[in-house]
């Protein structure tokens, strides 16, 4: 029982990280109809930025967190303006956008190595205690932070997309950009903001997991693909789906690793992705982004 509780808590924590990445994927798709594969490496950049602000510059954690989000937002915004928008203006096939984001992800990885280091960097813990007891088992306090952060982000994003003027205009731009522009919506600006927000969310994941895993250049690469799988499971483009899909994936793969074999962990995660694509492409929340035809 003790092991089950520990696996559930740590699985949800891992799922929380996946959720933060999944939300970025879904947000970008929801608001711009585009797919990206750079979210995982933006998480890495976020972790390095957090490391710089918190450990090297010794800023208070909350300041470091806000600065990391702000810089990540700018990176995401400029990525859209400098790469994605340029390609969109050329009316290229959507696959070129995906390929461009893959290229950008490698640039982020190598860039992080050039700016910071190829070493694993120590990220000091935010909490004074090394572990906390939950239902009789020890868990990392940062794990709980990840679960909480993903839930807060999900709620805030939902309200942002449905209750704010800019969120509504983002969705309008994604549905029919020409019609949106004719209504006076600045589609280009909206899309840029979307990419910026997605990058900011991924960066939150980076700064939260830094103390758990250390910070290194390939930190987010595997997490990025898992986040994508979580987004598909939940329903690609759905905020709640991203959250639930990410949590579910983290939970399931942790239980498989704990009770069956740690060697099957990643295999299981990707088999689930394939199963969803074949059996339920619209995901748990029946989002119509990926449909059976």
């Amino acid at each position: 029982m003790r092991m089950l509780i520990q696996l559930i808590i740590t699985g949800l924590a891992l799922g929380g990280v996946y959720s933060l990445i999944s939300m970025g994927y879904s947000l970008i798709y929801k608001a711009s109809g585009l797919m990206t594969f750079a979210q995982g490496d933006i998480l890495t950049v976020g972790a390095f930025l957090g490391l710089t602000f918190y450990r090297f510059l010794k800023l208070p954690y909350i300041v470091a967190l806000l600065l990391t989000m702000a810089v990540a937002f700018i990176i995401g915004f400029l990525l859209e303006k400098g790469v994605i928008r340029k390609l969109l203006n050329k009316n290229v096939n959507a696959i070129y956008i995906v390929l461009a984001t893959i290229a950008v992800s490698y640039i982020f990885q190598n860039g992080a190595q050039a700016i910071w280091s190829s070493k694993v960097e120590y990220f000091p813990s935010v909490f004074s205690t090394d572990s906390v007891a939950v239902l009789g088992v020890n868990v990392q306090p940062e794990s709980l932070l990840c679960i909480g952060a993903s839930m807060i982000c999900m709620i805030l994003l939902h309200f942002f997309m449905t209750k704010t003027r800019i969120g509504t205009s983002m969705r309008a731009a994604a549905m029919d950009s020409m019609a949106a522009e004719s209504c006076g919506i600045n589609v280009s600006l909206n899309t840029g903001i979307t990419w910026g927000i997605a990058a900011g969310i991924a960066a939150i994941g980076g700064i939260f997991i830094g103390p758990m895993y250390g910070v290194y250049v390939t930190l987010g690469s595997k997490l990025g693909t898992k986040g994508f799988a979580g987004a598909v499971m939940g329903g690609y483009g759905n905020m709640y789906g991203a959250m639930v899909g990410g949590l579910l994936l983290g939970l399931l793969e942790t239980l498989v690793a704990g009770y069956i074999s740690s060697e099957l962990r990643n295999l299981f995660a990707y088999i689930i992705l394939i199963i969803f694509l074949f059996v339920k492409p619209t995901g748990i929340f029946n989002e119509q982004a990926i449909q059976d035809v």
Partner: peptide, 10 residues
């Protein structure tokens, strides 16, 4: 891999 929680729990 970055997360070893399942191995740790076991």
């Amino acid at each position: 891999d970055t997360d070893f929680s399942a191995q740790v729990a076991s």
